[in-house]
Design a protein around this nucleic acid. Structure first.
Lengths: 229, 229
DNA sequence: TTGTTAAGTGTAATAAAAACATTTCAAATA
DNA sequence: TATTTGAAATGTTTTTATTACACTTAACAA
């Protein structure tokens, strides 16, 4: 790294968050309506600026917490966007993060205090700057990641049915999956616990609830197991 | 993105490049000996600072060109490193890129003018800052990427033997591969052209040279083909 | 002509993925 | 209380992909 630099080359480093949620059948993203200039009134991803005293992960967490009241969620750095004129007002670079949240369990937190709103991934409003590109990249990353890491569970409530899990994977991957093959595959991974409890909301018969078994998963990982769906 | 910011939060954004090469049996990285403070005399990745008038891809290309004289090579953004004290002297954020170059064809360019030197990926000197972490991450990314995109060819001369290609994959993946299975797999992809020319340097019999067929590959991609090795 | 060295080649066995239809349960209703 | 209803639960067969494996060939050297 060369140490001759020009103070003029210092830049503002922003962090923008693509926040994914899942509700019934639909993958969603959380957007906010800007109540400040520029682009006031337009929809945008949640963002803020990196501060001197924090790293990017911390900045992403801070921004998410301030704008949604939610803490301790899955966050992963995506990509750093740096087109010279991406922000027409000022030279800013933005590192995008994507987050997975269990929308159900945070419904109240996300209430009116915050000007955030969920939109279907297949139907959201025009966004400022390069935010659509960020979402596209996040979607691709999520699609890849979800078949090699058990992060899908972050989008579901703690207890979920096999059908919900399948719908989630179908929504993320954008393709229908065979019910029996899906269940067989999931069961063969042996990282869920089947509860003695049923969800009665979707049928008369009811369907068993499952939980992701974090300890078991960690145990298997340490034994060389690799999640592959 | 919130537009209240503090000018104090402006940062220096560096770009550091992990440059991979391949020589015979060994995957290598190109490092430079710093001839300036701080950390003068220590080895480091090639780096520089993002300038106001360019984006990160352009910065990475510029830095690579200035430090090696090489242009037009495969470059991919890796990750942005932002620990507060990663550079003890000054707050800098660094976006790492990795590059793949065909070391053979650039031997002369990389000659004495530049203080760069190749090191085996399995035996390189201590590096400054978080550069070892960058290399580790680049290595992981390369390993994944190489089985879904035909970027391995970037590391080989234009004409290469099947054996060279296999050795390359073995070096990247860190595992031995079965000769026949490997060749069968590659041939089934149908993206190479077998030349009428042999490389006589490795055996009395000689081994056929192949070329990656970019047009054919692009054609197949546009027809929905997906490279999977 | 014989030896040496790496190149070139195909098939069988195993494992993984995909296709596919019927039965079960619990509540609602006749 | 018997019957209907609608989603849940469940295994097997077929197809495809992956892995394992060994001998022959070409060219030059001795």
């Amino acid at each position: 790294m060369v140490y001759k630099y020009d103070l003029e080359d210092k830049v503002l480093l922003a962090v923008d968050c693509i926040i994914f949620g899942f509700d019934e059948e639909d993958l969603k993203i959380l957007l906010i309506k800007r109540d400040f200039e520029p682009q006031k009134g337009n929809w945008s991803l949640m963002g803020g600026f990196l501060q001197k005293k924090e790293n990017l992960d911390q900045a992403a967490n801070r921004i998410l917490y301030h704008l949604t009241g939610i803490n301790d969620i899955y966050l992963e750095q995506l990509y750093t966007f740096s087109e010279v004129d991406r922000d027409p007002a000022e030279r800013t670079i933005s590192t995008a993060y994507y987050a997975l949240i269990n929308a159900k369990d945070h419904e109240n937190v996300l209430s009116s205090d915050f000007s955030a709103k969920w939109f279907s991934i297949s139907d959201f409003p025009d966004l400022i700057f390069d935010h659509p590109e960020m979402i596209e990249k996040a979607m691709k990353r999520l699609r890849r990641r979800v078949s090699t890491k058990p992060i899908g569970f972050e989008l579901l409530p703690e207890k979920f049915t096999m059908r919900q899990l399948q719908k989630l994977y179908e929504a993320i991957l954008g393709t229908p999956l065979d019910k029996r093959n899906f269940i067989n595959k999931i069961n063969s991974l042996d990282i869920l616990v089947k509860l003695d409890e049923k969800d009665m909301s979707s049928s008369r018969k009811g369907s068993y609830l499952y939980k992701f078994d974090t300890e078991k998963y960690q145990q298997k990982i340490s034994e060389g197991f690799s999640f592959k769906l």
